[in-house]
Design a protein around this nucleic acid. Sequence first.
DNA 1: TCAACTGTCCTAGTGTGCTAGGACAGAAGA
DNA 2: TCTTCTGTCCTAGCACACTAGGACAGTTGA
Lengths: 136, 136
Amino acid sequence: MVFQIDFKAGKPVYLQLVDQVRYAAASGMLRAGEPLPAIRSLAEDLRVNRNTVAKAYDELESQGVIENFPGKGCFLKDNKTPFTKQVRQKLLIKEVDEAVVTAHHLQVDRDAFLELVDERLDFFERKISASEKNKT
Amino acid sequence: MVFQIDFKAGKPVYLQLVDQVRYAAASGMLRAGEPLPAIRSLAEDLRVNRNTVAKAYDELESQGVIENFPGKGCFLKDNKTPFTKQVRQKLLIKEVDEAVVTAHHLQVDRDAFLELVDERLDFFERKISASEKNKT
DNA sequence: TCAACTGTCCTAGTGTGCTAGGACAGAAGA
DNA sequence: TCTTCTGTCCTAGCACACTAGGACAGTTGA
């Protein structure tokens, strides 16, 4: 569980952390029920104030990705969304549309776009199965 | 060409404009070579300072979406990206990955995700052909 | 030539997002 | 019980993003 912060990226540190935890969870590096690094120790590793890490964890909790227990720690939630299939797809549309619009401006045609999506889905699935092998 | 600003959205006005212009271009409501609303008149319509609109147009120009000519106006570029196919796909990966990660957390499986992507691609293609009929 | 339009540069106020340190409360093990 | 870990609340500073108004330069048509 190694996170890396780019202080010259322009992007807020806490949001970089949020993205990396989400990414780690989606690629199987972090699994349901597993503990995240303690706020203070992670802050020390990253040379960042503990409230910056706390803010990231807070955001992740409000997104339903992790659960924080005062005195115990922070743990990856077993993602059981409270949403119906329809609602979940509606929540996804915004991000899919952004990618579709960008594809249009980059003149990436439909077939190439679908090919890329397929490739990225494969990429994450391979990562998940690889980390399952490592951990068992 | 009607833009709508949500002042309570939390998102900066100029970024809302950027998104809407990109969206309009990708859905055929705005076509290559066509002029965008003049900065001052659009600012007046939206009850916003002209520099706010100018900042949006400036951002769009730096993204290669439009071209601005002092004294003449701002026009939608015929999108000929200077990038190779490989570079364009690399630029897309970030946005695609974000959608894939979100899909994972929303427990939208591969098939449902691909179905949604297909649906959105159809949606934009229908919009393009519809606006072509309207304008010819 | 002149008026009216176009986008742009300069400067400034102001709100707020980001980061940070101190103090506090709950949990766990010696 | 006491120490040490855990996350959280409160407050504050600081920078910067956002917005805004004045002045300027290029273009166009009467």
